[in-house]
Design a protein around this nucleic acid. Structure first.
Length: 218
DNA sequence: CTCCCGATTA
DNA sequence: TAATCCGGAG
């Protein structure tokens, strides 16, 4: 079986085992973007607390974020950790959105894919994973999102060396799969699910792993 | 104590 | 490449 075939088989097995994950858990595209920043190196549970605070204040909008200072924002998103930095990051994104697209997400997402990615990456605080998450989960643009979990799973299956760049890992998926936003959405979410349930950092639970070696199918 | 859907700076 | 940001859950 080629590596591309394995990438495709992984998806089948994950979907068979876990079913649809239904990401992203956000009410609006704007909230999704805030969540993408807030969840950087942070558990989603803590991000929810931060988002709840923003919801309570009716602050999940360009006008909402603009109505408070970075320090006030930091206080509200405190449960998500790295709150001072993340407050700046969110402010940076808002400035970008207002300056480049008059505050319109529709205009932003209408931008050509690779061009939009470069523009998002130019924002201080938006790296490759956050940029791709924003495009896929807030904009529905077919971009495969890579994260630490993705790398760990591929590493443990011997599909990549320990030192592999974000873009290289992303290529492995885009070169093996059809360009389908709905499937990219599910695949990434399923990898996160897999990493939480089985492919954990320190104490992996290989028993029952949907991607475990199966002598009947190899 | 470690880890969590990272990114930047030195 | 390493240090830094950082609260919350297990």
């Amino acid at each position: 079986m080629t590596n591309s075939e394995r990438i495709r088989k992984f998806y089948q097995e994950l979907h068979k085992k876990f079913g649809p994950q239904g990401w992203w858990p956000a009410e609006t595209a704007f909230e999704c973007i805030l969540g993408a920043v807030l969840t950087q190196s942070t558990s989603w549970k803590n991000v929810e607390k931060a988002i709840d605070n923003l919801r309570r204040g009716n602050l999940i909008s360009v006008e909402g974020i603009n109505s408070i200072t970075a320090d006030e924002l930091a206080l509200l998103i405190r449960p998500s950790g790295y709150y001072n930095q993340k407050a700046i990051k969110i402010k940076n994104f808002i400035s970008f959105l207002v300056n480049e697209f008059s505050g319109s997400l529709d205009s932003m997402f209408a931008t050509e894919k690779s061009h939009l990615r470069k523009k998002l990456l130019s924002i201080k605080g938006i790296g490759p994973e956050t940029a791709d998450s924003i495009m896929l989960y807030a904009g529905g643009i077919p971009v495969f999102v890579v994260d630490t979990y993705t790398w760990r799973v591929l590493l443990r299956h011997g599909l990549v060396p320990e030192v592999t760049s974000y873009d290289e890992i992303q290529e492995i998926f885009t070169d093996s799969l059809q360009e389908d936003a709905g499937m990219f959405n599910e695949y990434h979410a399923l990898l996160v699910r897999l990493a939480k349930d089985h492919c954990r950092k320190n104490n992996p639970v290989c028993a029952g792993c949907p991607l475990e070696y199966d002598p009947h199918t190899v």
